[in-house]
């Protein structure tokens, strides 16, 4: 869930918040001032639980409410079902079926491949770096969002509670029949809520985010259906093999003209 803003957008706002704190008139308490322990501690336990898993899989549904048109105040809800697998020393794989398209994604530690299932076309891009930061790089360079980005970070607490975050515990409720604790949080741009399992491992049950600053204040609801923190994943799960008849396309990076696709072994245009 992208409750975290991009670093390149953070800086001016962070600077303002920091300045406000320095002059003693801060209306927006920064994380340095301390998030309410009633919120911070459950988030930290959740983060530690996720980080302790060398590999994991998660399946979730997503509902996004967005403006029907750029200048419209009518909202449209778009659905998706998502599964993500992560092995911290190997790679990432994701399956996404949604109203905005269905695709599969592989990352083997150096190369990302995305296969559009409806077009039977794929594109590849070199994205070297650590596995846990892959989803960040994928989003920043290629514009592909996997909504569990922050939760799969090496320190999801830090990823979620950026400076300026405030929060409170609302109470305990049931999410899909399971007891979960409900928290509301706010940072400089996003109001978000998280429900964390109150029994068993402290894992996310649900996550809701509203981007107050974006036109129409889009709202995203993630319902986590299952977590598996002992997933048996291996290299083959992160290795792309072109399906029969698939076409390789150039992957347009942000702000760059597309380059010609590389020759994919086994690909048949």
């Amino acid at each position: 869930m992208q409750v975290r803003r991009r670093r390149d957008r953070l800086r001016p706002l962070e600077a303002m918040a920091t300045l406000a704190l320095m002059v003693g008139g801060a209306a927006l308490p920064a994380r340095a001032q301390g998030l309410d322990p009633a919120v911070a501690e459950p988030l930290r336990r959740m983060s530690a639980t996720l980080a302790a898993a060398p590999s994991l899989t998660v399946r979730l549904t997503q509902l996004r409410e967005v403006p029907a048109a750029p200048d419209s105040d009518q909202m449209v809800s778009l659905g998706a079902t998502i599964a993500v697998g992560l092995k911290r020393d190997s790679g990432v794989a994701a399956l996404v079926g949604g109203d905005r398209g269905s695709y599969r994604l592989w990352y083997d530690g150096s190369t990302a491949t995305l296969l559009s299932l409806t077009a039977n076309a794929y594109a590849r891009a070199a994205l070297p770096g650590d596995v846990e930061g892959f989803l960040d790089r994928l989003e920043l360079r290629l514009g592909v969002q996997v909504p569990v980005r922050d939760l799969l970070a090496s320190d999801s607490f830090a990823a979620l509670t950026e400076p300026g975050t405030t929060g409170a515990r609302i109470g305990r409720t049931l999410v899909n029949g399971a007891p979960c604790d409900h928290f509301m949080l706010r940072n400089l741009e996003v109001d978000w809520q998280i429900w964390i399992a109150a029994s068993g491992q402290p894992l996310p049950c649900r996550l809701v985010a509203i981007d107050r600053k974006a036109p129409g204040a889009p709202r995203t609801v993630l319902e986590f259906q299952s977590w598996n923190l002992k997933a048996k994943l291996d290299v083959a799960d992160f290795t792309f093999v072109p399906p029969p008849g698939a076409t390789e396309l150039s992957w347009r990076e942000r702000g760059l003209a597309p380059s010609q696709p590389s020759q994919a072994p086994g690909a048949r245009p």
Partner: peptide
């Protein structure tokens, strides 16, 4: 515009990008 709107503002700044 449904598609254009759909890409606007998933959550936070990322989708604006």
């Amino acid at each position: 515009g449904v598609i254009a709107g759909a890409t606007a503002g998933l959550v936070s700044g990322a989708m604006q990008q």
